[in-house]
Design a protein around this nucleic acid. Structure first.
Lengths: 108, 108
DNA sequence: GATTTATGTTAGTCATGACTTACGGTAATT
DNA sequence: AATTACCGTAAGTCATGACTAACATAAATC
């Protein structure tokens, strides 16, 4: 299940977002991700766990290494949530403008 | 300045997201928002401050009351960031597939 | 002008989470 | 089979933040 709550929490951390952006450029094992990041390898592992539980990444065992890659489904879920939100906010804004015009018309 | 970092942090909190969704339905003063939420009014004020600094809402004084509404600019910034991200991840995925095909062709 | 209404701010508490070190487990290598 | 490479987990520390209660401020009302 792709939870919007978990996804937003996952992306709110800068380090985790950095990992996610790295994976956007292509799949990678944990150690490679840890090099080039200012945190330890276990920290990266913990971040990847959060990203995985949020449905944003998937993993695959490959010998001793574990390859992580972006899960498009999770990213798509956030986009969908955001789009629906955008639509609601826009229609509410338009309704508000219409109400405002009506009020001014009544007052002359 | 609409900072993606601040925006994502702002939306990662469930209570704050609830406030934001309420405002998506239309502008509202602080007290009205606080009723119908399980937290105190000062808590709502603090959340609104975070949302405002993230560029997600704007406020307007109206007598003793302060009306908050959604700032479309902030929401649009997140959408833009997400779309660009989506594009990068997709092209990287396609490139990976192409590399994989090439590898299989070489091996016969 | 005193009171009421509506809100922002401050101080303090408590829970959460990001991090490191140490350890355990599994697969490849020699 | 011993060693090495790679990774996840556990425990513990420390900073951050969400929350409440108390106080301060500004506008409307009486």
């Amino acid at each position: 299940m792709t939870n919007i709550n978990l996804a937003l929490i996952a992306l709110s951390d800068p380090t985790r977002r950095q990992i996610f952006e790295r994976l956007a450029a292509g799949p990678s094992p944990v150690g490679v991700l840890a090099d080039g990041l200012p945190v330890s390898r276990p920290a990266v592992s913990q971040h990847l766990k959060v990203l995985k539980e949020a449905g944003l990444v998937s993993d695959e065992s490959q010998g001793t290494r574990r390859i992580y890659r972006i899960d498009p489904a999770g990213l798509g879920a956030i986009r969908q949530w955001l789009d629906r939100f955008w639509e609601v906010a826009l229609t509410a804004f338009q309704a508000e403008v219409a109400r405002d015009n009506e009020r001014r018309k009544d007052q002359g």
